[in-house]
């Protein structure tokens, strides 16, 4: 078996590339902090390492997955943004995480998420796109709105026992 090649997405300031072994430390560091409370954390290093493996395996299983966000000119991992569809998810999702607070407030997550939403429409040809956001995650709600997504109160919840917001991204006009 070959673990499939991941594409690279380029934006004005960023390169989005597939996750690799050297990104595990930053991923684990994020999941050790309270910053991860809205995306399944905090968790132990062992859990986080397995979860990082899951991020890679997701690519092999689906042919799409989450990208590591880097700035042009540096390979340092700033966050993980992209396409996410684990078992039991009612719909395919575009999700985003910035590992450190220091990376916030510069439009990095917006720029990366926008590229991934665009990729989902034009390359992956998804018929619809949602983002699942935990209650209380105000920063992500703001980002979803900035991306033009709208709260869909009728949508099926991925984890009905802990319901959150489902934001649905508007289909671009003129998309074939």
């Amino acid at each position: 078996m070959t673990l499939i090649k991941t594409p690279t997405l380029e934006t004005d300031r960023l390169i989005l590339r597939g996750p690799k072994a050297s990104d595990a430390e930053a991923f684990m560091a994020f999941y050790a902090t309270e910053r991860s409370q809205f995306t399944g954390g905090p968790m132990t290093p062992r859990q986080a390492w397995n979860f990082f493996g899951t991020e890679i395996g997701h690519w092999a299983i689906h042919g799409f997955g989450m990208f590591i966000v880097t700035r042009k000119g540096s390979d340092a991992p700033l966050g993980i943004v992209g396409h996410w569809y684990p078992w039991g998810w009612p719909e395919k999702e575009v999700g985003w995480v910035l590992f450190e607070a220091a990376s916030e407030g510069q439009g990095i997550a917006f720029e990366a998420a926008k590229a991934c939403v665009d990729h989902a429409w034009r390359v992956l040809k998804w018929p619809t796109i949602v983002s699942y956001i935990a209650h209380g995650n105000d920063a992500s709600v703001a980002l979803a709105k900035r991306l033009g997504a709208l709260l869909d109160e009728e949508a099926v919840q991925p984890k009905p026992e802990t319901p959150g917001y489902v934001y649905r991204h508007p289909r671009p006009e003129g998309l074939a």
């Binding site: 673990l3 979860f51 899951t54 395996g57």
Partner: peptide
């Protein structure tokens, strides 16, 4: 999640 992690372990 574990199955995907088994694949990721290889990488």
């Amino acid at each position: 999640m574990l199955y995907a992690a088994e694949i990721g372990h290889w990488q």
